[in-house]
Design a protein around this nucleic acid. Structure first.
Lengths: 149, 149
DNA sequence: TTCGCTGCAAACGGTTTGCACCGCG
DNA sequence: CGCGGTGCAAACCGTTTGCAGCGAA
């Protein structure tokens, strides 16, 4: 199933009684064109020239979070970054490397299956989940092996 | 397996060339006595009277994060809170009920197993993971079934 | 025409930093 | 003793807020 696009976003805003403005469309486009979470400074640098004010950016992200169009995630152990949620982006989990700090997305249904098995046993009804795996990525493992054998 | 205590913490610090100080022990005790993540203000209020300065608290949490004794998690979509990691606390995931709002800890090794399989495929070395499942707990499901059959 | 949205700039407060003193190893 | 750790207070800067003008519906 493809993810919802700008057209659906516009409709979504209208359905929720939120006005469709150029600024909100700009932010949505930037979010959708990125395949990694973006911080406020990230967003600010990518909308330069559009005249979008920082204060407005904060307000837009707050609105989109309340509407559950995006959700905040912790980046580099200290910065908050935003990521699109379903149906505007495909669900995935994160692998965060403790050394290079990069985040790799995992699209793996086996995790969902395991989760479903467990939740069935416990009688939980799952809406959605969010997972972050911390560790060492293949590249950094190689780098370490070369430097200190 | 029981979790490591203060004795192991002291040894851990020594092994990593980090000095054992009263402040660090105080923070560790507070963290271990809490069964939920604590923010800096949370910690500050719980160490009042010990003379522990806020700036020092920030520095201690930074150190403990680097040592992976604790890790930061996002709370209420905006505040950073800290949680003890293994072996100083038993690993668990969270189920947050959308109705009653309660958080239930999940201790289930099958999830770990699934995760290990996936990470092996990707060549990722896992340190730890953190998961938050949102859904409906058994109690609320029953309550709903009774109220609106 | 209305009222939500935005730009601007000042205010705010959580976090960081410099420095001298303390005390663990 | 040496140097890492700490308290203190000022500086910093990301974030919030008040307000007037704009523009989506």
């Amino acid at each position: 199933m493809p993810t919802a696009g700008e057209k659906e976003f516009v409709q979504f805003l209208r359905d929720h009684g939120v006005r469709v403005t150029p600024n909100r469309l700009t932010v949505f486009r930037v979010m959708q064109s990125s395949n990694e979470p973006l911080t406020i400074p990230d967003l600010a640098s990518r909308v330069e020239g559009s005249g979008l004010n920082t204060a407005t950016l904060y307000r837009i992200m707050e609105t989109l979070t309340e509407l559950q169009v995006v959700h905040p995630v912790l980046q580099d152990h200290q910065n908050v970054a935003y990521e699109l949620l379903e149906p505007f982006a495909r669900h995935h989990d994160h692998l965060v490397c403790r050394q290079c700090g990069r985040t790799v997305n995992i699209y793996d249904c086996r995790l969902e299956e395991a989760l479903k098995t467990i939740s069935d046993d416990k009688g939980f009804h799952i809406d959605f989940h969010q997972m972050e795996v911390h560790g060492l990525c293949p590249d950094c493992q190689k780098a370490n092996a070369t430097q200190s054998p």
